[in-house]
Lab assay of single mutants.
Amino acid sequence: QRITLKDYAMRFGQTKTAKDLGVYQSAINKAIHAGRKIFLTINADGSVYAEEVKDGEVKPFPS
């Protein structure tokens, strides 16, 4: 399943989102408010992988 960072954070909370991605909650808040195009893939085992689309390139998040 693929979902935006904002939607994932709204569904699970910023604290869990940060923990799942290995970053601080403040980084999640800042990324959402900056309007960054970050998409999360939720794997069947429950693990989460995030990618950011920037300038036409897709890069892992966090980099």
Rank of each mutant, 00 (worst) to 15 (best):
L5S: 00
I3F: 11
L21M: 04
G35D: 14
K19W: 08
G35F: 06
Q1A: 11
K54D: 12
A27S: 11
I38Y: 01
G46M: 06
Y24D: 15
T17N: 01
A18D: 01
T15N: 12
A34W: 06
F12R: 04
A34I: 09
I3A: 06
G13C: 03
M10R: 10
A34Y: 07
G22M: 06
L5W: 00
A31V: 07
Y49T: 14
E51C: 09
P60L: 07
G46W: 05
Y24G: 15
Q1R: 07
D45F: 05
V23H: 04
R11E: 13
L5N: 00
V23F: 04
K6W: 08
A27Q: 14
Y49I: 12
I28R: 00
A50C: 04
D45S: 06
A50H: 01
T17Q: 01
S47F: 10
T15C: 13
A50V: 03
S47R: 08
D7K: 05
L21E: 00
A18I: 02
T41N: 11
D20N: 05
N29H: 14
A34R: 09
R2E: 06
F12K: 03
N43A: 10
R36N: 06
I28W: 01
G35E: 11
N43D: 09
V23N: 02
D45C: 05
Y8E: 01
F12A: 04
L21D: 00
I28M: 05
G13L: 02
M10S: 13
K59A: 10
K59T: 13
G46E: 05
A34F: 08
I42Y: 06
I32S: 02
T15H: 14
Y8G: 01
A44N: 12
A9C: 13
V48A: 05
G35K: 11
Y8N: 00
S47C: 08
I28K: 00
V58C: 08
P62C: 04
E52M: 03
G13E: 01
T41H: 07
K54F: 15
R11T: 11
T41R: 06
I28A: 01
A9I: 15
L40M: 09
T41G: 05
K37Y: 07
K59I: 15
Q25D: 10
E57S: 12
K16F: 02
F12L: 04
F39H: 05
K6C: 09
I28Q: 00
K19M: 12
G13T: 03
K16C: 05
V48T: 05
A18F: 02
H33P: 02
K30L: 12
Q25G: 10
L40T: 02
V53C: 11
Y24L: 14
T4V: 04
A34L: 09
R11C: 11
K54A: 13
V53D: 12
V23T: 13
K6P: 07
N43Q: 13
Q14P: 15
K30A: 14
D45Q: 06
A9P: 00
K19V: 10
Q1K: 09
E57K: 11
G35M: 10
G46I: 02
P62W: 04
T17Y: 01
G13V: 01
I32E: 01
P62Q: 04
T17I: 05
E51K: 05
M10V: 12
F61V: 02
A27H: 11
A31E: 03
N43R: 12
E51G: 04
R2W: 15
Q25A: 13
I38P: 00
A9L: 14
T41M: 10
P60C: 07
Y49G: 06
L40H: 00
R36Y: 05
Q1Y: 12
L40D: 00
Y49S: 12
L5E: 01
F39G: 01
G56F: 08
V53S: 08
L21C: 03
G35S: 08
G13S: 03
N29E: 15
K30I: 12
A18V: 02
N29S: 14
Y8C: 02
A18E: 03
T15A: 14
Q14C: 14
E52W: 04
S63Q: 12
Q1T: 14
S63P: 11
L21F: 02
A18W: 03
E51I: 10
D20P: 01
I32D: 01
G35C: 07
N29W: 12
D20S: 06
E51Y: 09
A18G: 05
F61M: 03
A50D: 00
G56S: 07
K6I: 11
R2T: 11
A44I: 11
K6Y: 12
R2H: 11
D45P: 03
T17L: 06
K54E: 13
I3S: 06
F39T: 07
K59G: 10
A27T: 14
D45W: 05
T4R: 06
I42H: 04
I3R: 04
D20A: 09
A9N: 07
H33W: 10
M10F: 09
Y49C: 11
P62M: 04
K37Q: 13
S63F: 08
T15Q: 15
Q14V: 15
R11N: 10
D55N: 13
A27C: 15
G13D: 02
H33C: 12
Q1V: 15
F12P: 00
I42D: 02
Y24T: 15
V58T: 13
I32T: 02
N43P: 04
K37N: 12
G22S: 06
Y49V: 13
S26N: 10
F39D: 03
F39I: 08
Q25K: 12
K30D: 15
K30M: 12
T17P: 02
L5D: 00
G35R: 09
S63M: 10
T41C: 09
A9F: 10
I42F: 08
P62L: 04
E57T: 12
S47V: 08
N43F: 11
V48C: 06
K16R: 09
V58H: 10
S26Q: 10
E57C: 12
N29D: 14
V23Q: 03
R11I: 15
K16A: 08
S26I: 10
T17C: 07
I32R: 01
H33N: 15
S63C: 11
L21P: 00
A50W: 03
A44L: 11
G13K: 01
R2K: 14
R2D: 04
E57A: 11
V53K: 06
R2V: 13
K16N: 05
S26E: 12
G35L: 08
S47K: 15
D45G: 05
K30V: 10
A31F: 09
L21R: 00
F61L: 03
I42E: 04
F12H: 11
K16G: 03
T15S: 13
S47G: 08
T41L: 08
M10Q: 15
S26R: 09
R2Y: 10
D7N: 05
I3C: 09
E51M: 07
L40R: 00
V48Q: 01
S63W: 06
V53T: 08
K30Y: 10
S26G: 12
